[in-house]
Simulated scan of single mutants.
Amino acid sequence: MSVWTELVGQDRAVEVLSAATTSATSMTHAWLITGPPGSGRSVAARAFAAALQDPGDADGTGHQVRTALAGTHADVTVFATEKVQISITEARELVSLSQRSPSQGRWRVIIVEDADRMTERTANVLLKAIEEPPPRTVWILCAPSPMDVLVTIRSRCRLVNLRVPAPEAVADLLVRRDGVDPGLALTCARAAQSHIGMARRLATHSDARAYRDTVLAIPTTIRGVGDAVLAAQTLVEDATEQSKLATTERDAAEKAELMRTIGAEEGARIPPALRAQIRQLEEEQKRRSRRALIDLLDRAMLDLLSFYRDVLVTQLRSDVPLVNEAHAERIIAMADHSTPEQSVHRMQAVGLARTRVAAGAAPLLAMEALTIALRPQG
């Protein structure tokens, strides 16, 4: 087993990152790892951080590598946010941390996942630290594309671009790592369009597969405006319920921990001086819940996009495999009763809805506009 084992289908990236761990001429103080969602940006960043601590540990069994990969290494910090944006306060804390010398390993490594969630003001806070870091500090930023990061930041980083791995490579990882049945693993890898995290969730959670089936049934159930409005409502309600299930338990644990920290008993009156801390936590939890809802809706829209992609592929008689092979009957039926132009129009409607939701539009209104645009024409 290698430190790079879980970074599937990224041979060129592994070559570049591996060379940097052993060669001073290949190494630099700031890296930007980009690639589409699910390509393995975070996996690459963590593997690189681990390899930097002990380049000689080829099989990844040493203490330095194991703790770095497990997230317990004292000199490897992974910053990830579930909020819509990374705050200036959080950026300043990272800058302060970056000035410390490594205590155990060869490097102090700071990984910033979703660096595209930094506003210009937040990115400017990091600029000086990234431009002139201490000699043993390494920054690793992750983002979908270089254009998602402020130009002054990306110009000071070495770029490593990941590509979409083949479904077969993702399926092989699911079989090896998670013990998934090979047939199910390949089906889920194709359905997730090689998004490793989503493929794993689909393969290991039957409720996730059931929700996806519900989403893919929408195109063939809409006959008019009434059906479209009901479909949008169901989609948002289901996504809201799933987001609550994903965050409620964690929210309760965080609040209980805060109450213990400030010495307040459950149900007791909170002193005015401490109420601000409670409100701040509640606001952060609301932002996280909204982020979870947006992410779920975006995933649903990507699934719809894959459905219409398959319809268009069928209409054009293209010799490429379907993403949603299990829904081939529905896909063929829609291909027979619509035109390629209509399929393209519907794909554009999905893209517009994704933009609206990401920009802060009310989810229900955006989904209603989308499902109305998906109804049969003529």
Rank of each mutant, 00 (worst) to 15 (best):
S2I: 10
S2M: 11
W4T: 00
T5G: 03
V8I: 10
G9C: 02
Q10P: 03
Q10Y: 03
R12Q: 09
R12P: 01
E15Q: 15
T22C: 07
S23F: 07
A24G: 15
T25N: 07
M27V: 03
L32S: 02
T34E: 01
P37A: 09
P37S: 08
G40K: 07
S42R: 14
A44Q: 01
A44W: 00
A51I: 10
L52W: 11
L52F: 11
Q53M: 08
G62C: 08
H63I: 08
H63A: 11
Q64Y: 09
V65Y: 10
G71N: 04
T72F: 01
V78W: 05
A80D: 13
Q85M: 11
I88V: 15
I88F: 11
I88N: 02
A91D: 06
E93M: 11
V95K: 10
S98V: 04
R100A: 11
P102N: 12
R106P: 01
I110F: 02
V112M: 11
E113P: 02
D114H: 11
A115I: 09
R117H: 04
T119R: 14
L126G: 06
L126V: 12
L127R: 10
P134R: 12
V138W: 00
A143V: 03
A143P: 00
P146F: 12
M147K: 10
M147F: 05
V149Q: 00
V151W: 06
S155P: 05
R158P: 14
V160I: 15
V160L: 08
V164F: 03
E168V: 12
L173Q: 07
R176D: 14
A185W: 01
C188M: 14
A189H: 03
R190F: 00
A192F: 07
S194M: 06
S194N: 09
R201N: 09
L202V: 12
A203V: 04
S206M: 07
A208W: 15
A210F: 10
V215N: 04
V215C: 05
A217S: 13
A217Y: 01
A217F: 01
T221F: 02
T221I: 02
I222P: 00
V225K: 06
A228F: 05
A228M: 07
L230G: 13
T234F: 02
A239R: 05
T240W: 10
Q242W: 11
S243K: 04
L245T: 01
T247D: 01
A253M: 13
E257T: 14
T261Y: 08
I262H: 05
P272W: 04
Q277R: 12
I278N: 10
Q280F: 13
E282H: 06
E282K: 04
E284R: 15
Q285G: 04
R287M: 09
R288I: 13
A292L: 09
L297W: 01
L297K: 00
R299S: 07
S306M: 10
F307A: 04
L312D: 05
S318D: 08
S318W: 02
S318V: 15
P321S: 14
L322P: 09
V323F: 13
E325G: 13
A326I: 14
E329V: 15
R330M: 03
I331G: 01
I332S: 12
A333Y: 08
M334R: 03
M334Q: 12
E341M: 10
Q342E: 15
Q342S: 06
R346H: 06
R354Y: 06
R354V: 09
T355D: 09
V357N: 00
T371F: 02
T371Y: 02
T371H: 04
L374I: 15
L374N: 07
R375H: 06
P376Y: 07
P376Q: 08
Q377A: 06
